Amino acid sequence: MAAGGDHGSPDSYRSPLASRYASPEMCFVFSDRYKFRTWRQLWLWLAEAEQTLGLPITDEQIQEMKSNLENIDFKMAAEEEKRLRHDVMAHVHTFGHCCPKAAGIIHLGATSCYVGDNTDLIILRNALDLLLPKLARVISRLADFAKERASLPTLGFTHFQPAQLTTVGKRCCLWIQDLCMDLQNLKRVRDDLRFRGVKGTTGTQASFLQLFEGDDHKVEQLDKMVTEKAGFKRAFIITGQTYTRKVDIEVLSVLASLGASVHKICTDIRLLANLKEMEEPFEKQQIGSSAMPYKRNPMRSERCCSLARHLMTLVMDPLQTASVQWFERTLDDSANRRICLAEAFLTADTILNTLQNISEGLVVYPKVIERRIRQELPFMATENIIMAMVKAGGSRQDCHEKIRVLSQQAASVVKQEGGDNDLIERIQVDAYFSPIHSQLDHLLDPSSFTGRASQQVQRFLEEEVYPLLKPYESVMKVKAELCL
């Protein structure tokens, strides 16, 4: 049975990233139509530049190519590739079939990587351009969430054990800070992308030097003109047959890092959902379990974690691919890159769409948070109580021993009897502590235990987050809708 299948058929496997999760716009960027249309555009740009620099290419040939950029006979191309065992030459023939007058000058002087690699770089750039505003929107939604809850005390956790208090907004800023680093890295790697350009079979530009009869300047002009037509500021000066596969490492490393950030955020949300302090959106008709109707599973956060793990592992592909590119190139890269580049971007696209949807509907339960604080705060307040007693004339050592005994009794009630923490009640009825009984409410005010959390939130948002989001103001209103 021949390899390949009808990918629109229910009898043929289709990647869930495309069929179930990723956005239509990201799927289109990695589609065959987008790819092969870009090949034709690159052939047109090459012909236009070659004509401008004096090669015998007519206006009629150029116009014929322009008129057929979208006229792609995919069936013919597939048949040609089956016959020739070469995808680029299959599309040269297919393009030439609908451009008979231009057929002889299509791909003039070029090698397969002229269309293959340059198209990949265009796709990487455009895919990054799709991700950047999506990530900015996630940051914006979380920034709104953090600002609104900047002063809401909550129990902090280290080692997932109760620690000092923080605020809900401050905790959210930990998430935002990681995503801001990801946004900066995505922008950097996007701006650092260079075009492969017009380089020939081993990167020496020998074929173009021959076409222009040894004119170095025209060869350099050709490279520059096509690079500018493709919208790049610069091209690699040095290439082998391909652009260095280190570029793929750079791009997928940034995406993998984004995956790590999203995994951490969504894990926190899942843990908070278990504590009943916070939940992701839950639709009115949504079913959490087929057997347990009360369940409210954090399905979206779980999906993000599941896909983020996949995204983090994909960076190993370009690392290994770059390491086995012998001399000017081997074909070890080809099949692998067809999979890992598309999957990385479709996965990143999915987790950003999902995280935006989550961040637009996060639900906080202040009463649950308050109750958990009441359970733990008495123990945390013991040092403040000791200091207040010393100020009232008591002995630190005597007070410490009193607190120690009462704390152990209260802990026994919590752990052995399943009761509430009654340390404060014990202190309130103990005559030894009568000098500070009137101060206990103040000493137990949760806001006095959150330090500068709310001020940190305000400063972080104003100095770091809002300036970073400013270039994306025009796209901030787009909502994230999930079908599944």
Rank of each mutant, 00 (worst) to 15 (best):
A2V: 06
G8K: 15
S9E: 12
S9N: 15
S12G: 15
Y13W: 15
Y13Q: 10
R14G: 15
A18W: 10
Y21T: 00
A22S: 15
P24Q: 11
M26K: 00
C27F: 11
F28P: 01
S31A: 08
R33D: 11
R33T: 10
K35R: 15
F36N: 07
R37Q: 15
Q41Y: 14
W43N: 04
W45C: 07
L46C: 08
T52D: 13
L53G: 05
L55S: 05
L55T: 05
Q61I: 08
D73M: 06
D73Y: 08
K75H: 12
E80P: 03
E81W: 00
K82C: 11
L84G: 08
D87Y: 01
M89N: 00
A90Q: 02
H91I: 03
H91Y: 07
F95E: 01
G96M: 08
L108A: 15
G109V: 00
G109Q: 00
A110C: 08
A110V: 04
T111F: 00
S112L: 00
D117H: 03
D117Y: 00
L124W: 14
L124H: 10
A127T: 06
L130K: 13
L130F: 11
L132H: 14
V138C: 09
V138N: 11
S140Y: 15
S140M: 15
S140R: 14
R141L: 14
E148A: 11
E148P: 06
E148D: 13
E148C: 12
P153S: 06
T154A: 11
T154Y: 04
L155W: 02
L155P: 03
T158V: 01
T158M: 01
H159T: 02
L165K: 02
T167R: 02
G169C: 02
K170W: 02
R171M: 00
R171P: 04
R171Y: 01
D178E: 13
L179M: 13
D182W: 03
D192I: 08
R194S: 09
F195P: 05
R196K: 11
R196Q: 14
G197L: 01
G197D: 04
G203A: 01
G203F: 04
T204H: 06
T204P: 00
Q205A: 15
F208S: 04
G214V: 06
D216H: 11
D216V: 09
D216F: 08
K218P: 12
K224N: 09
V226W: 03
A230M: 02
K233N: 10
A235Y: 14
F236T: 07
G240T: 11
Q241P: 00
Q241R: 02
Q241F: 00
Q241M: 04
Q241D: 00
S253K: 04
S253G: 13
V254T: 12
V254A: 11
S257P: 05
S257E: 09
L258R: 02
L258W: 15
S261E: 04
S261H: 01
V262Q: 05
I265K: 08
I265T: 13
D268E: 14
D268C: 10
I269C: 05
L272P: 04
A273N: 11
N274V: 08
L275R: 09
E277Y: 05
Q286I: 03
S289C: 00
S290D: 01
M292I: 02
M292P: 04
K295L: 01
R300G: 05
R303A: 02
R309L: 04
H310I: 12
L311K: 02
T313F: 09
L314D: 05
L314Q: 13
M316R: 04
P318R: 01
Q320C: 10
A322D: 06
S323G: 09
V324Q: 07
T330H: 03
L331K: 04
D333K: 03
S334L: 04
A335H: 02
R338Y: 02
I339S: 13
I339M: 11
I339W: 01
L346S: 11
N357S: 15
S359L: 07
E360P: 04
G361I: 00
L362I: 12
L362Q: 06
V363M: 09
V364D: 05
V364G: 03
Y365G: 03
I369M: 11
R372C: 04
I373E: 01
F379C: 03
M380D: 00
T382E: 03
I386L: 04
I386R: 02
I386Y: 04
M389Y: 06
G393W: 05
S395V: 03
R396S: 04
Q397C: 06
H400K: 02
K402M: 02
I403M: 11
I403A: 05
S407N: 04
S407P: 00
A410P: 02
S412D: 10
S412V: 15
K415S: 06
Q416T: 09
E417I: 07
E417K: 11
G418H: 01
G419C: 10
N421V: 11
L423M: 14
L423Q: 05
L423V: 04
E425Q: 11
I427N: 03
D430Y: 06
A431L: 10
F433C: 07
S434Y: 10
P435L: 08
P435C: 08
L440M: 08
H442L: 13
S448D: 14
T450W: 04
T450H: 01
Q455L: 12
Q455I: 08
E463P: 03
E464N: 06
V465N: 04
V465C: 13
P467N: 09
P467A: 11
P467Q: 09
M476I: 15
K477M: 13
